[in-house]
Design a protein around this nucleic acid. Structure first.
Length: 110
DNA sequence: GCCATGGCTAGTA
DNA sequence: GCCATGGCTAGTA
């Protein structure tokens, strides 16, 4: 048994807080986790922990606003899951970010 | 299409 | 060494 390294733990927590009907980008999750340039690590986390941690992995897409999985079973699964949550996804995997991008609530002290 | 990015783990010593 | 990125540019039409 091993506890996750800090970035990984934060990424898991953030991914868990993306609500139904919304999507985040790899880079956004990385930035909220404190490492704006670590988008690829978010990919790694998704890849390695989605199953074990039961993450809403389908709610994370790329910065161009589309599904990054190569066309195939995974791609279709992601599109189906998003649609089932009310997210409009085109046949090619594009999501209307104006409507569905998750904007995390931040706390600001003056 | 290219390539810098980076946290982490498997696997070696 | 992995990885489902991201951002910029050359090169086509």
């Amino acid at each position: 048994m091993r506890e996750y390294a800090p970035f990984t733990a934060r990424a898991v927590h953030i991914i868990r807080s993306i609500p139904r009907g919304k999507v985040a980008t790899y880079g956004l999750v990385a930035a909220v986790a404190g490492s704006p340039l670590a988008a690829r690590q978010v990919v790694r986390v998704l890849h390695a922990l989605s199953r074990k941690e039961r993450l809403p992995w389908h709610r994370v897409i790329n910065s161009r606003g589309s599904i990054s999985l190569p066309r195939g079973a995974g791609f279709e699964r992601q599109r189906t899951l998003l649609r089932s949550e009310g997210v409009a996804v085109t046949a090619t995997g594009s999501v209307d970010m104006r409507r569905h991008l998750w904007v995390p609530r931040i706390k600001v002290s003056l």
